[in-house]
Nucleic acid binder design. Structure first.
Lengths: 167, 167
DNA sequence: ACTATCTAGTTAACAACTATAACTATATGC
DNA sequence: GCATATAGTTATAGTTGTTAACTAGATAGT
């Protein structure tokens, strides 16, 4: 089936019958955006497989963990923390509420805002999911040592939250 | 405006009036998928700003660089390399062709397939964009040293292409 | 109290991206 | 020459991300 191994030759004028299979050697290999996206897709694929049985998507998982950590958080604050637009939060919480994992509590002092809490069921599930997510991370990064994994994590935090990166 | 600094207290039954602003301290901070996504969004934001004047989106940039490296590559192979579905390649190449940056050449041996080439204009633009992308990467990761940036890149390659990671 | 302005949440509309199925034209193997 | 496979394309639908606009309640000034 495979016709030939890739050769490094370049600058030809005829359609190419070789089968290059990676970006190795191209400038693309040095671009952080590209590498981040590809790595993210890899890790997300594992995550989604792990969560498939629970029908939990990445944004839902993140929300559950944040609500668990900040019970009574308002939707606005949740949106800020996760850097998600407020309209997206609405359907996210709707979904969690429909499944009986979270609930909105109208705030007495400011009747416009809702505090979000996990139900007992939501708390229990979140505990499970956190363990699952950790396993998924490890599986997705088999090619990394534990030290490298931690290194990677700390470099990533420096990028997306340079202020909070362990000082 | 700001009401109060976040306190670490948790497990309350009333809506929270504190304003947590990050995932610091939460389990989420240790999840690779989350960190990768947030970091990717950060880097992409810079990239998109840099490319805005040229109306080039990330996938288009990647395509240009791969076509430059493998002139005459078929759409199928381009799809494989970038891990994009074939239908998506079609509109991508259409767009590049409409802008006079790339062109399809029907392959003589296999009249089903097209070799894709950059036009002179496409080549010139790609050179410009590559330099721009590098600058954008650096700007997006000001909080990293050059060594850390290279470290990060190599860790990411290990994840998404464990076989080709510099052996 | 009365009005204007602000904010939290929501709804709706829309663009962008992803994934799938099906169609065409060639090509290949028996 | 017939059945099957492949490259590219088109069409379609589901998901996400983005923006604008609406409602209910809050706040400040007069």
């Amino acid at each position: 089936m495979t016709i030939s191994k890739k050769s490094a030759s370049v600058h030809q004028v005829e359609p190419d019958d070789k089968e290059p299979t990676s970006v190795a050697g191209l400038e693309l290999e040095n671009r952080l955006g590209y590498a981040l996206r590809r790595a993210q897709l890899t890790v997300f694929k594992h995550f989604n497989e792990a969560m498939q049985a629970y029908e939990i998507r990445p944004a839902q998982f993140s929300s559950l963990v944040v609500i668990e950590g900040y019970p009574g958080i308002t939707q606005t604050n949740l949106a800020k923390i996760l850097d998600i637009d407020p309209p997206r939060i609405v359907s996210l919480i709707n979904h969690l509420e429909e499944r009986g994992l979270a609930l909105r509590v109208r705030c007495k002092r400011d009747k416009r805002s809702h505090g979000i809490f996990l139900s007992k069921k939501g708390e229990a599930l979140t505990e499970q999911l956190k363990a699952l997510a950790e396993q998924s991370d490890i599986q997705a990064t088999q090619s990394l040592s534990e030290i490298e994994r931690r290194q990677l994590l700390s470099l990533l935090v420096k990028i997306y939250a340079p202020d909070t990166a362990d000082e």
